[in-house]
């Protein structure tokens, strides 16, 4: 079927993309299908599970409920943009060390939601971590190793981002 396409200018992980897509496409769809950034996953596509979370100017949003056309000119961060200059983010390191990813499918959304939390509050309490991540569902871990990993990453970030 022929549909009108709109030319979008998106800034994802610091890279500028121009892509023509029908205006009703969600950010999730554009990231995965048009930009081939498949690190962002989907678990429901209707805003219920947190799996597709990306950062928009540092704040977590559900990419399945966000129209790509609405986020032009904003800074979009996906899991592919977490590691900087070949160096993993402390959250990624802590997740690996603590076994916070099992099947790994909810992991990108967890990492980005946790990053947004730690960016504004590097030393969150257990309650604050649970509150921040309560919209992200995980079926493998029982959340406990994720909790440990976020706390550990926060401590390391507060100490200057050093990871062993």
């Amino acid at each position: 079927m022929h549909r009108e396409a709109t030319l979008l200018h998106l800034r994802v992980n610091g890279d500028d993309y121009s892509v023509a897509v029908p205006p009703h496409k969600t950010l999730l769809e554009v990231l995965r299908e048009d930009l081939l950034l498949t690190g962002t996953k989907h678990g429901c596509e209707v805003g219920e599970c947190g799996t597709c979370t990306v950062l928009l100017d540092g704040e977590p949003v559900l990419s399945c409920l966000t129209l790509a056309v609405d986020v032009q000119g904003r800074g979009i961060t996906t899991v592919e943009g977490l590691a900087q200059n070949g160096e993993l983010h402390p959250l990624q390191v802590a997740f690996a060390e603590r076994g916070a990813a099992q099947c790994g499918y909810c992991t990108p959304g967890m990492l980005l939601t946790a990053k947004a939390l730690l960016d504004r509050n590097p030393r969150p309490t257990e309650d604050e971590i649970q509150e921040a991540l309560s919209g992200n569902l995980c079926r493998c871990t029982g959340y406990l190793k994720i909790l440990e990993a976020v706390r550990l990453a926060g401590e390391r970030l507060a100490q200057g981002g050093h990871t062993p």
């Binding site: 299908e33 950034l37 690190g39 989907h42 977490l82 590691a83 990624q92 690996a96 076994g99 790994g104």
Partner: peptide
């Protein structure tokens, strides 16, 4: 030790079935 697929899973590189085109 960390699981051997940890880095792929933590950087978005793991390709699940729907990621393939």
């Amino acid at each position: 030790f960390p699981r051997v697929d940890a880095w792929d899973k933590l950087t978005g590189r793991t390709q699940y079935a729907d990621d393939l085109t």
